[in-house]
């Protein structure tokens, strides 16, 4: 994308959105992501209304306290993401390194906790008289693992990109003249965070 930025920077343009191209691109991509999760969440709502007895009470199978902590971890990672971006704008190299790495680490920690949660559910829980809460455990299991799984996949991709951003941070790549990549990554990361808050609410709490 550096190529695109360089190739277009020098040219005159009709006024579009007063935002640089990569940021516009990420906004548009996120619209598509909204529709993807809307498809999954919409299906969840329809299926749950159609067969409400297939769902457990909040906390009956799912471990709400652990996931609440995990939610908190993800929210913290959004804060560190904002800090990393602010540091890049100020040119504070030390903070850039600390905060990008912290965001990547918190994202990885979230995945770790989710992995633990999955293992516990599949191996050590009871649901409707059978052992193990799996994707095959009726609509409840299927929607739970599909929705949280796809969210987890998005977090995983985010962690990969954050690791790459951290490596760049340690090479001194980011700064007041080069913060766009971090900002765009930040948009994605906040979106993933927001989706999680919605999922946590409708899957775990309601």
């Amino acid at each position: 994308m550096a190529h695109a930025a360089a190739a277009t920077a020098g040219r005159a343009h009709e006024r579009g959105l007063d935002v640089y191209t990569q940021k516009v691109g990420m906004w548009i991509f996120l619209c598509s992501e909204v529709m993807f999760f809307a498809g999954l969440i919409g299906s969840y709502i329809v299926l749950r209304f159609g067969a409400s007895d297939a769902w457990g009470e909040p906390g009956e199978v799912l471990n709400v306290p652990v996931t609440a902590v995990n939610t908190f971890i993800l929210i913290c990672s959004s804060v560190t993401m904002v800090k990393a971006f602010a540091a890049a704008q100020e040119g504070d190299q030390k903070s850039i390194k600390i905060y990008t790495l912290a965001t990547a680490a918190l994202g990885a920690l979230f995945l770790g906790v989710q992995g633990y949660e999955y293992t516990e559910l599949i191996l050590h829980s009871e649901w409707q008289g059978s052992h193990g809460f799996t994707p095959q455990a009726g609509l409840y299991g299927a929607t739970f693992f599909t929705m949280t799984g796809f969210h987890g996949f998005h977090v995983f991709l985010g962690v990969v990109f954050l690791s790459w951003a951290s490596i760049r941070a340690f090479r001194g790549h980011w700064g007041p003249n080069n913060y766009q990549g971090l900002e765009v990554l930040g948009l994605y990361w906040h979106f993933v965070d927001l989706v999680w808050i919605i999922l946590f609410t409708i899957v775990y709490l309601i």
């Binding site: 529709m35 498809g39 609509l139």
Partner: peptide
């Protein structure tokens, strides 16, 4: 529109392969 098809297609794929019942 495409992401909605992708979401639906993935659910159908799960019905087909891993035994979900969407």
């Amino acid at each position: 529109a495409m992401p909605v098809l992708s979401a639906a297609g993935i659910m159908l794929l799960f019905d087909q392969t891993i035994g979900t019942t969407f």
